[in-house]
Amino acid sequence: MKILRILTICILTGALGHGQVIDLKHLDRLAAKATETADVTLDGSLLKLGAKFLSADDPDQARVRKLVAGLKGIYVRTFTFENEGEYSEADVTSIRKQLQSPGWSRIVGVRSKKDSENAEVYIKTGGPDGGLAIICANPKELTVVSIVGKIDLDELSELGGNLGVPKIDLEKPKTSNVEKPKPSSKKEDD
């Protein structure tokens, strides 16, 4: 009886631990249809190992090292398709559903009719670990990024501008449900 109780506690603790990670397994089947696929799964130990090999002399790598110091996992799935409609809305909905669980809040949601691109940014606040999820979906491309752990959005954004993408000056949304942050006066071309 005691053993059963301990086992139940262990299973529950494990389930809670895994609850932090967004389940992206259902997206694996899209790899067969996609012309280009990127699948990165870096969990605790692998992330630490990778961070250890980042050079302190390279400024970009040093910044990435600092950024990922408090992270517990990074998961990226990117699919590029030849034709439209290769993935279904249900594929994205199942991720959105997971992001409706307590602690998660959508900070940015963009729907562009011009280039049919939908993009959403979610952050997880409260609890011991933070988190970040980005969903970018256009008819021919689907990208899902899931980061477990506390991450500095400004730093990541700066790195986004630094690692091959030009930097733009942006204000971070101050409240959890801000859809459109104030436009910045600074403007830089891509």
């Binding site: 990127a38 990165v40 870096l42 692998l46 992330l47 190992l49 990778g50 961070a51 090999f53 980042l54 970009d60 790598q61 990435v64 950024l67 990922v68 990074i74 998961y75 990226v76 990117t78 993009a119 940014v121 970040l132 980005i134 970018c136 990208t143 990024v145 980061i147 959005l153 990541l156 954004s157 700066e158 790195l159 986004g160 501008g161 630094n162 690692l163 091959g164 993408v165 733009i168």
Partner: peptide, 18 residues
């Protein structure tokens, strides 16, 4: 792992930038 990490951060930063 380092290459994957750099790629993942690049993709995340790039998408956030977009």
């Amino acid at each position: 792992a380092k290459e994957q990490l750099m790629f993942a951060v690049r993709v995340a930063g790039n998408r956030l930038h977009r």
